[in-house]
Design a protein around this nucleic acid. Structure first.
Lengths: 145, 145
DNA sequence: TTAATTGCAAAAGTTTTGCACTGGC
DNA sequence: GCCAGTGCAAAACTTTTGCAATTAA
């Protein structure tokens, strides 16, 4: 499943006429294997990237390139760094403030309606949204009791 | 109105037993006068802060203190810096990707329901959420046509 | 008085850039 | 062969910290 998603994205890249360099492919495979969004720092210390000796500047350049091409998406959460993940299915996140775990969640229907309402009320034309939930995951909520 | 909001927050600060130093008061007045959330850099170059010669470190320390005390709220959007605004009414933002204007918008009812659903489905206990819309404001949308 | 707040300067952390070299197509 | 992509080192930018001096309560 992960590989199927990844293959689709690689195909999309080629179809957009982009070069698929070694660095970009490794980077995408790291993101595809990750359980949640990764920071540039986490990508840099991932075994695959270290093994291939991919430079910090290259990682940043590839990330911003892939984001521009809509292959990946970046998030700014409370922390200091930007987080990246594959842009395969649009989704949102549940961030546990205790253990820092990040889970994915699908919420969108209701925002579509809201966005239409915003357009009608204010004239603002929504192109995309960012929605993240902060709180306690099941485990941490149980511990706190 | 701005001053009424500000006064309430200053009162809240005192009631929480916090010192109300000159720096903090100026900083809050700058945030109160702003049309949208401000970055630390914008705060630093604001006339009031420059006039009072408030140090960069002081601004950052005051901001994180005030955030901890729930007097202000901070956001991470696409840009590189954190943005701050008074935490008077919880709200969200419409960010114009063309002219960078930021408008406030109130959306929350529907998220409350969604958060209950998340708790029921996943056990995750939502404490707060971040929701921001990116797109084109009325003016910019009209220009693009 | 005295504990909290501030200024200053320096450090830490993240991300970007210039330039010469390499590699994909 | 050509242009896009890369490595390296240095810079830029945002935010934090240690310490001595100051200030609000």
């Amino acid at each position: 499943m992960i590989n199927k998603d990844l293959d689709k994205l690689l195909l999309a890249l080629r179809e957009q006429g982009c070069r698929l360099s070694g660095g970009r492919e490794i980077l995408l495979s790291v993101l595809a294997a990750a359980k949640g969004p990764l920071s540039a720092a986490e990508i840099l210390i991932s075994p695959a990237v270290k093994r291939a000796n991919i430079n910090r500047a290259t990682v940043y350049r590839a990330l911003s390139f892939l984001e521009k091409e809509n292959i990946i998406e970046s998030l700014r959460l409370d922390g200091d760094e930007r987080l990246y993940h594959l842009n395969f299915h649009h989704h949102h996140h549940l961030l546990c403030t205790a253990c820092k775990k990040i889970e994915a969640v699908h919420v969108c229907g209701l925002l579509g309606r809201e966005e239409k309402k915003i357009a009608a009320d204010t004239g603002f034309k929504v192109q995309r949204h960012v929605l993240e939930f902060y709180g306690l995951c099941k485990n941490c909520a149980a511990k706190k009791k």
